[in-house]
């Protein structure tokens, strides 16, 4: 069963033991159907926020409420059945077959001594199919490429059947095709009434898929809004610097801003083929 997928963090503050401020008064809220992309430079507090929301790190101040209950008051199993965490990579590489690895996502649902019911196996099969891993189900995880392993992590979260996804840089080692498919998968999940918070460096994928973007800078939310509101020169330049060019892509779903790393704001874009077109300008899509 899929739970509600509502999470709220209020005035989250955290310092590392070195004294560096990681989170400096962050408010965050996600409801069913939301896909919030958290973007920002390295060290701006994105991954720390994800760990705090996941209940893996206790913030110095502030509280996280998941589906109406304080996340720290939930047991590990309760948390896992409501919220799936997709890490960027694993601290170790389990020496298991892909199917068994994905079954790990069902842990909170398993019976005594890891006994699993038919619906657990079905959930795993579905997750493997949805991530194009069904043909690799019996291979060892170590035999997969970096991108395939990334998809195995997504498959495991899918099998978990949680209402909320917290995803840390899901496209790091994926090719362009699978980057889009990873985001499509997350967007599909959100369309079924679940919600996702995705930490990413890819501003254009965020533009394409996010219902909302939060721009982080030095532990604070520098800007928050729709892609059109955030991916603008006057918002991004104070955070990322001047080396970006901005444009707008006309898509069937409406105009979408895009940002490319090119150190000349006067660069002009011309898109080849396709039904839409692109325009660039100093202001970008606003």
């Amino acid at each position: 069963m899929v739970s509600a997928g509502e999470i709220r963090g209020r005035d989250l503050r955290h310092r590392f033991s070195s004294g560096a401020r990681a989170l400096d008064g962050i408010d965050v809220e996600l409801g069913p159907g939301d896909l919030l992309c958290v973007v920002g430079p390295n060290g701006s507090g994105k991954s720390t926020l994800l760990r705090v929301l996941a209940g893996l790190l206790v913030p110095d101040e502030g509280e996280v409420v998941l589906d109406g209950r304080a996340v720290r008051s939930l047991s590990s199993a309760e948390r896992a059945s409501r919220m799936a965490v997709v890490p960027q990579s694993l601290a170790g590489l389990p020496d298991v077959r892909v199917r068994d690895f994905v079954m790990g996502g069902r842990y909170a649902h398993l019976g005594f001594f890891g006994r699993h019911a038919p619906e657990d196996a079905e959930a795993v099969d579905r997750a493997l199919a949805d991530t194009d891993l069904d043909e690799m189900a019996d291979r060892l995880l170590a035999e997969l490429s970096g991108g395939q392993r990334q998809r195995a992590l997504l498959a495991r979260a899918l099998a978990q059947g949680s209402g909320l996804w917290l995803v840390d840089e899901p496209t790091t080692s994926l090719d362009v095709e699978h980057q889009v498919r990873a985001f499509e998968l997350i967007a599909e999940i959100c369309k079924t009434g679940r919600s996702a918070l995705v930490v990413t460096h890819d501003l254009n994928l965020a533009s394409q898929f996010a219902t909302e973007i939060a721009l982080f800078d030095r532990g604070r939310v520098a800007a928050r809004g729709t892609p059109g509101e955030v991916l603008r020169r006057e918002v991004l330049e104070p955070v990322y610097g001047p080396h970006l060019s901005y444009g707008t892509l006309e898509t069937p779903g409406g105009p979408r801003p895009f940002v490319v790393p090119f150190p000349d704001g006067a660069a002009r874009a011309r898109l080849d083929g396709g039904p839409g077109g692109a325009s660039t300008g100093p202001g970008g899509g606003g």
Partner: peptide, 25 residues
């Protein structure tokens, strides 16, 4: 053994990963 076996399998990906999967690490 029945209370730690599956859990130790999930430790292979790291303690934090196991915790996120619902293991009382």
């Amino acid at each position: 053994i029945p209370f730690v076996a599956v859990e130790l399998d999930l430790f292979a990906g790291g303690e934090e990963d196991a915790e996120a999967l619902g293991v009382h690490t």
